[in-house]
Design a protein around this nucleic acid. Structure first.
Lengths: 299, 299
DNA sequence: GGAAATCATGCGGTTTTCCTGCACGGTATG
DNA sequence: CATACCGTGCAGGAAAACCGCATGATTTCC
C-alpha cells in the first residue's frame, strides 16, 4: 500500500506542470519532489510520468491516479475533521489554522477575530497571510493555507469550484469616497473627475467600472492601487474618487467624504475551505470568531 | 496530513483487541505497533486509545477513525487497481499476488493455474498459502493475503460480508467414497458403517452430517481429518466411508470406489478479494487462469 | 546560431523515521 | 502470592527523506 500523502505531490504536479513549481508550492527542494514521485512510481509499480522536453508529463496511469487523488485526500481530511470534532469535546482545541485573506478584512475584522480566538482557544495557533485571489485556490489545495477569505461583488458571481466548501461570512456596503473639497455631486457627475481603482482584471475593478458605465460614463482611472489606505490618501488629497467598502471608512483620514451609492450595493465576503475540512472545529471556531467580530464592528 | 497506512494498524487493533495480536497479524513487533499508533495519535492531535486493564481500548475518536478507515483504504486500493489496469496495457503484469486456499484446490487446480500464470505473466509472482476458513477474512483485510479461496456447500449459505467482493470460480460434485470391499450399497445402508469426516464446526462437516440425516441415520464419525488424502487412505483400507469432492477422485488410490449421491449435490468454490482490489489485473489474471485450469481438469 | 536560462534528476551527507530486542511496570489468572 | 501476559518506553542499527550541488538535456533569447 502506498503513502497517500504523495498524492498531494502528484496532484500539484498535474496542476502546476513542473517539478520545480511543485517544490516551490510545497516548500520542498526540486530533488525532494522528484524523489517523492519516483517512490510513488515504485509503490504503484508503474511509471506515472515521462520526460517531455525539459519538463515531465503525466502518463495515462498518472492522470488516472490524479483523478483518484481528490476523493482520497478529501476523505482523509473528513476523517481528520471528524476526529478533531470528537476530540474537541474532551480537550482544548489545539493545532494550527492558516488563513489567507485580503486587506480590507485584515485591517480590522481579522485582528478582532484573532483576539477572540486567542481568548477562547489559547492553544489554537492561527496564522494569517495575504494572497492574491488567483493564488488562493491553488494554495488551498496545496495545503499552504487551510482557509481562504474571498470577496465577491454584486452581479459578478465568482467561478464555481469543486472540492471546496464556501460560506458567506459577511456583507459590506460599497460606498463612494470623494475629497471633501469636491462639491457634493451625484455619481454621474463624476465623469470628469479622476478615479483610483484596483488593478485591471480584479473583481473590484470590474465591478467599479460597471457601476460607472451604468451611471453613464467611462471612468478615467488615473491611479491604480489595491491598497485601500493608499486609495483613501489619494482621495483625501483631492486626486481621485474611489469606491471603498464601508469597513475601511473608519480608516479614512479627515478630508474624505463618504456617500451612499444608489441601491446601496454590497460586496460579500466568504470563506473557502477544502471540502473535507469544513467541519473541522478550528474552522468552525474561526467562523464564529469572524462573525462575532463583524457584529461588533457593525455596532 | 497523516499517513493513511497507519489506519491499517488502527483497524487491526479494533478487530483484534490487543497490540500484540496486531503485531502478530502484521508481522511487526509489539513495540513497533505501539509506536505506529502513538505517531498516528500525534498526527491526529488527539488520543485514539486509552489503557484498559492490561490491554488498550479505542476512544470515541479512535472508533470514529476506524469507521472512516475502511472507505479510505478501499479507495486507495481502487486507485491502485485502476493504475495497474492502465499500466498492464503498456507493460508486462508484475508484482505479487498472495493467494490463500484450501487443500482440494491446492492439489490440482492451483498448480495448473500457476503453470498458466507463469507462462502468461512471468513477472507476476504468485504466492500461495493454506488458511483456515475462519482466518481467511481477517488475513485478507490485514493485507496478509490478496485473494482467498473459500468453499460453500449446498443450502449452507456463508455469511455475507462487507468490504469484499466474491466471485464464483468453480463448482464441484460431491461424491461418496467407499472401500471397494464393501458391497455396493445405497447411502442409507451406510448407517452401520464408520465414517471419516472433517473436524466438527467446519462447513464440510455440517453438510455431510446433514446429508446423512436426510438419508435417515446419524453418521458414526470414527475418524476426523481435514486432509482428503488421509480420508481416502482410510477409505481404501476399509476403515470408513467419506464424502469427497470430485476433484480429488484422481488422487484416490485403487481400492476406493466412488458413487454419485442422490441429486448430485455440488459444492461451490469462490474467491474473496478486498473490494478495492477486485479489478486489479493480477486478480483478473488469476481468475482467468483458475477457470482455465478448471476447464482442463473437467475435460 | 550560440549563450544563458530553465528543468529534471542523480549523488554525497545529514537529519529524521522506523523497526527490533530488551527491560520495566501494571494487570489478570490460578 | 507466583506466573503469565500486555503495553510501552529506551538504546541501537537500518532505512527513508531531505537539501545542496552538479550534471545533462532542452528551451529561450539575444
Amino acid at each position: 500500500m502506498f503513502d497517500a500523502r504523495r498524492l498531494l505531490v502528484l496532484r500539484e504536479l498535474a496542476a502546476r506542470g513542473t517539478v520545480t513549481a511543485v517544490a516551490g508550492a510545497l516548500n520542498y527542494s526540486p530533488s525532494a519532489v522528484s524523489r517523492q514521485l519516483a517512490v510513488l512510481e515504485e509503490e504503484m509499480g508503474t511509471a506515472l510520468l515521462e520526460a517531455s522536453g525539459r519538463r515531465v508529463r503525466l502518463t495515462p496511469a498518472g492522470e488516472a491516479l490524479v483523478r483518484r487523488a481528490g476523493p482520497i485526500l478529501e476523505q482523509m481530511e473528513r476523517a481528520e475533521s471528524e476526529v478533531s470534532v470528537l476530540a474537541s469535546e474532551s480537550q482544548e482545541l489545539s493545532g494550527r489554522l492558516r488563513v489567507a485573506a485580503f486587506q480590507t478584512v485584515l485591517l480590522d475584522v481579522i485582528p478582532m477575530a484573532l483576539e477572540r480566538l486567542a481568548h477562547l482557544h489559547p492553544r489554537l495557533r492561527v496564522e494569517t497571510g495575504r494572497l492574491e485571489p488567483e493564488d488562493a485556490l491553488p494554495a488551498l489545495s496545496a495545503h499552504e493555507y487551510d482557509l481562504v477569505l474571498e470577496e465577491e461583488y454584486p452581479s459578478r458571481p465568482g467561478p464555481r469550484r469543486a472540492g471546496v466548501t464556501l460560506r458567506q461570512v459577511m456583507t459590506d456596503e460599497m460606498v463612494l469616497a470623494v475629497p471633501k473639497s469636491w462639491t457634493r455631486v451625484p455619481l454621474r457627475e463624476l465623469a470628469e473627475h479622476p478615479w483610483v481603482m484596483e488593478p485591471a482584471g480584479s473583481a473590484a475593478r470590474d465591478w467599479a467600472t460597471q457601476i460607472c458605465r451604468e451611471a453613464g460614463f467611462e471612468p478615467e482611472v488615473r491611479h491604480v492601487s489595491d491598497d485601500m489606505l493608499v486609495q483613501l490618501s489619494l482621495v483625501r488629497r483631492g486626486h481621485a474618487a474611489a469606491f471603498v467598502p464601508e469597513t475601511v471608512v473608519p480608516h479614512a483620514p479627515s478630508g474624505v467624504a463618504v456617500e451612499h451609492l444608489p441601491g446601496r450595493p454590497r460586496r460579500t465576503v466568504f470563506s473557502v475551505v477544502r471540502a473535507g475540512g469544513s467541519t473541522h472545529p478550528a474552522c468552525t471556531a474561526f467562523h464564529e470568531a469572524f462573525e462575532h467580530a463583524v457584529d461588533r464592528l457593525h455596532r
